[in-house]
Amino acid sequence: MNIFRLTADLMHLASIFILLLKIQKTRSCAGISFKSQLLYALVFITRYIDLFFYWVSLYNTLMKIFFIGSSLYIVYLMQVKFRATNDPVLDTFRIEYLLAPCALLALVANYAFTAQEILWAFSVYLEAGAILPQLFMLQRRGEAETITTHYLFALGAYRGLYLLNWIYRYWAEGYVDWIAWIAGLVQTGLYTDFFYIYYTKVLKGQKFELPA
């Protein structure tokens, strides 16, 4: 554990708490892509299935339980409790175009042709693109509530910090994980536009609005 990874994981935790706060406080999930949240639940389930047979640490286990639990809870909130505020009309990204390539890629590009390694690779590839429905929705709406942009910033920062963590681990331990690295690089890259607007608008006290 190094400072980059710890901060990254804490940012990830923070992003989920911000999202829960947004939903509970506004009693609405407007502006949040249900498809992205569903994909995250799938990412966590397929990746953390090793919870039952691969022990790393108490920290690791508790975080895995939290990420699986909270992602399912968010899916429940959006699909059941606050269903009326969910806006499927704007949530039009075709996730089959994401799921199918990720499944195919996981079958060809994995560390071993075992169920666990294929599921793990799938979860890593899927996580890289899971934010796309959300960014697509943001693009269609043209604006976002400030709290939603804080959620996205925390989520993007978590990914960015993982890159620093990998640079540090490569230097300190000779740690190498090409699948996670390439997917992580792609994932962080998807946030570049968002980061730019967040920096130039939200952090200067303005509303998050995309140029027409």
């Binding site: 990830h12 090793d50 691969y54 790393v56 895995k64 560390y111 071993a112 666990q116 993982y162 994980d177």
Partner: peptide
């Protein structure tokens, strides 16, 4: 079950 790489990250 053995994994190929050490999966100690989240």
């Amino acid at each position: 079950l053995e994994t190929v790489t050490i999966k100690d990250e989240l």
